[in-house]
Design a protein around this nucleic acid. Structure first.
Lengths: 108, 108
DNA sequence: TTTTTTTATCGTATATTTGCGATATGTAAA
DNA sequence: TTTACATATCGCAAATATACGATAAAAAAA
C-alpha cells in the first residue's frame, strides 16, 4: 500500500460497509439509459403514467414496465394506482439520500 | 404525459443521447461495492498496486483484477506498469466528467 | 539458471440482466 | 355482459456480470 491509512476507508473485516453497498445499489439502478431517462422525465414532470414512458422509450411496454419495477425496488420511485392507469413519481427521500451518497463519493 | 415538454429531455428519434448513455456507463462502473471501494481507495492514496486491493477486498486476486479491468475500460482509472507490479491511479479527466454528469443529473 | 513475485488472462460455472411476445388482471365504457 | 384499455407478470432466450482456481507472462532476486 502506498500509504498506510487504508483502515479508515476499508472495513478491516473485509466486508463492505452499508453506505458502500447502498451507493453501489443506487448506481446499479442508474446503470441503464432507459432508467436514467425515466428519472430525468419524472424530475421534469412531477408524475407520469407508464404509457408516457412507453411512448418515448425505444423498447416494448413490458420492458419499460420492468425498468419501472427496478427503480421502484431500488426505492427511487413510487407507484400510484389510478385505475386503469398507474402514475409514478420520484421518492424524494430516497432521491436525496442517493444524491448525498454520490456527492460524498465525488467529494462535493 | 402529464406535461407536454418531454421533447426537451427525450430524443424524438427514440434513441438515447450521448450524455445519457455516458452517465449510464459510469453508473454501471460504480454498480459494485468492490469498485466503489477501489475508487475510494485511490482517491485517498494517489496510487495503489493491485496487491493493495487484494489485501483488503473480500475476493480472489483474479476477481479483483477483473474489477480493475472494468474500471480501466470505463476510463475511470489508469494503469501504470512498474514491473513486476502495476500501479493504478484515478483518471482525473474522466473523474471530473463523471462528477459533472452526476451533478447535472442530481441538479446540483 | 532457477525461483520468487506480481499481475493478467483463461476456462468454467452460476447468477443476473435485458428484452420480447403472450397473457393475466382490474377497471371503465359500451 | 361484453369490450376496450392500461399495466403487470409470465415464460423464454440471449447477453452480460460475478467469482474462482489454474495458468501464463515478465521481471527481479537468489
Amino acid at each position: 500500500m502506498s500509504n498506510k491509512d487504508y483502515k479508515k476507508c476499508f472495513n478491516p473485516n473485509k466486508n463492505f460497509r452499508g453506505h458502500t453497498k447502498e451507493l453501489a445499489r443506487y448506481a446499479k439502478a442508474l446503470a441503464h439509459p432507459a432508467r436514467i431517462k425515466i428519472l430525468n422525465f419524472l424530475n421534469n414532470s412531477k408524475y407520469c403514467y407508464t404509457g408516457d414512458f412507453v411512448e418515448v422509450l425505444p423498447m416494448a411496454q413490458s420492458t419499460v414496465s420492468q425498468h419501472l419495477k427496478e427503480l421502484k425496488e431500488a426505492g427511487l420511485i413510487i407507484a400510484n394506482e389510478q385505475p386503469p392507469r398507474v402514475s409514478y413519481c420520484i421518492n424524494k427521500d430516497a432521491w436525496e439520500k442517493a444524491k448525498k451518497l454520490f456527492m460524498d463519493f465525488f467529494d462535493v
